[in-house]
Simulated scan of single mutants.
Amino acid sequence: MKFLAASAVAFGLGLFAMTGSQAMPLAPLGATAASDGIIQVYGGCGWGGHRGPYGGCRPLYNCPPGWHPGPYGRKCFRNW
């Protein structure tokens, strides 16, 4: 019976502590993305780049014009 009472008290304290938290408050309705000063830059790599499989920056197009990447982007092949 002691265990049941102690677990009920612990559960009640947990619920009481949870009601006051604000993990994600609502944003005001008048806020816009432009006023925040945030600029999207393709994952931090800049224009013409993207993140590779291990998190490094890679060029978006890694072959010159008239060529296309082969399997896994490791070799360039001429467009015929």
Results as ranks from 00 to 15, higher is better:
Met1Thr: 12
Lys2Ile: 05
Phe3Val: 15
Phe3Asn: 12
Ala5Leu: 10
Ala5Phe: 11
Ala5Ser: 11
Ala5Cys: 12
Ala6Ile: 07
Ser7Lys: 04
Ala8Thr: 15
Ala8Asn: 03
Val9Arg: 13
Ala10Ile: 09
Ala10Thr: 09
Phe11Glu: 06
Phe11Cys: 14
Phe11Lys: 03
Leu13Arg: 04
Leu13Asp: 00
Leu13Gly: 01
Leu13Tyr: 05
Leu15Asp: 09
Ala17His: 07
Met18Cys: 09
Gly20Val: 01
Ser21Asp: 10
Gln22Tyr: 09
Gln22Phe: 00
Ala23Phe: 10
Ala23Lys: 11
Ala23Arg: 06
Met24Pro: 01
Met24Cys: 06
Met24Asp: 12
Met24Asn: 13
Met24Thr: 10
Pro28Ile: 10
Pro28Arg: 05
Pro28Thr: 09
Leu29His: 04
Leu29Asn: 14
Leu29Glu: 08
Gly30Tyr: 15
Gly30Asp: 14
Gly30Glu: 15
Ala33Phe: 14
Ala33Gly: 05
Ala34His: 12
Ser35Gln: 05
Ser35Pro: 03
Asp36Leu: 15
Gly37Asp: 04
Ile38Glu: 06
Ile38Met: 13
Ile39Gly: 12
Gln40Arg: 14
Gln40Asp: 09
Gln40Ile: 15
Val41Glu: 04
Gly43Trp: 01
Gly43Lys: 12
Gly43Ser: 08
Gly44Met: 03
Gly44Trp: 00
Gly44His: 00
Cys45Pro: 00
Gly46Trp: 08
Trp47Met: 12
Trp47Ile: 15
Gly49Gln: 07
Gly49Phe: 08
His50Ala: 10
His50Leu: 12
His50Cys: 14
Arg51Glu: 03
Gly52Glu: 00
Pro53Tyr: 02
Tyr54Gly: 14
Gly56Met: 06
Gly56His: 02
Pro59Ala: 13
Pro59Ser: 13
Leu60Gly: 14
Leu60Met: 15
Leu60Trp: 13
Leu60Lys: 14
Tyr61Thr: 15
Cys63Gln: 01
Pro65Val: 06
Gly66His: 01
Gly66Glu: 03
Gly66Ala: 10
Trp67Arg: 00
Trp67Gln: 05
His68Cys: 11
His68Met: 02
Pro69Met: 01
Pro69Lys: 02
Pro69Trp: 00
Pro69Cys: 02
Pro69Ser: 03
Gly70Leu: 10
Gly70Arg: 11
Gly70Ala: 02
Tyr72Asp: 07
Tyr72Trp: 14
Lys75Val: 14
Lys75Asp: 02
Cys76Ala: 03
Cys76Gly: 02
Phe77Ala: 05
Phe77Pro: 00
Phe77Thr: 07
Arg78Trp: 00
Arg78Tyr: 04
Arg78Asp: 05
Arg78Leu: 10
Arg78Glu: 06
Arg78Gly: 08
Arg78Ser: 09
Arg78His: 06
Trp80Gly: 12
Trp80Leu: 15
Trp80Ile: 15
Trp80Lys: 13
